Amino acid sequence: MSWKTRHRSFYYEGAPEPDDLDLKPAETALLVIDVQNTYVERPDRSKLAPAEQAAYDKWTPFHERMQGQVIPNTRRLLDLFRSRKIECLFARIACQTADGRDRSLSQKMPGWNNLLLPKNEHASQLVPALSPQGDEITVTKTTDSALTGTNLRLILHNLGIKNVVCAGIFTDQCVSSTVRSLADESFNVVVVEDCCAAGTDALHEQELAIINMIYCHVMNTDELVAMMKLT
Rank of each mutant, 00 (worst) to 15 (best):
C88S: 10
L154E: 11
P16N: 03
R153Q: 15
L147K: 06
R45P: 07
H63E: 02
I161K: 14
Q36C: 02
D172P: 09
N163D: 13
H157D: 15
Q53T: 04
C196E: 06
C196M: 04
N188F: 09
T143V: 06
T142S: 14
A91T: 15
V139Y: 07
A49F: 04
I155H: 12
K119I: 03
L48H: 04
P43T: 01
G68Q: 02
T143L: 04
R42I: 07
D22Y: 05
M219G: 01
L182A: 14
K4V: 11
S104I: 03
A129L: 11
L77T: 03
S145Q: 05
V191Q: 07
L224W: 02
R76L: 12
R42M: 13
S124C: 12
L21M: 15
P16R: 09
P72T: 01
V139C: 06
R180F: 07
P132Q: 13
M1A: 15
V32Q: 06
V164H: 13
L230W: 01
K58I: 04
H122C: 04
S124E: 02
N120F: 09
V190I: 13
Q69P: 00
G134L: 09
T143S: 12
N212I: 13
A209L: 08
E87L: 08
E205L: 14
Q173M: 14
L77W: 00
D99C: 06
A29L: 04
D102L: 12
S124Q: 07
L89V: 07
F81K: 02
N120L: 11
V190M: 03
T74M: 03
P132F: 13
S104E: 14
S176R: 15
V40L: 14
L31K: 09
F62T: 04
S177R: 14
L208E: 00
R101H: 15
R103Y: 05
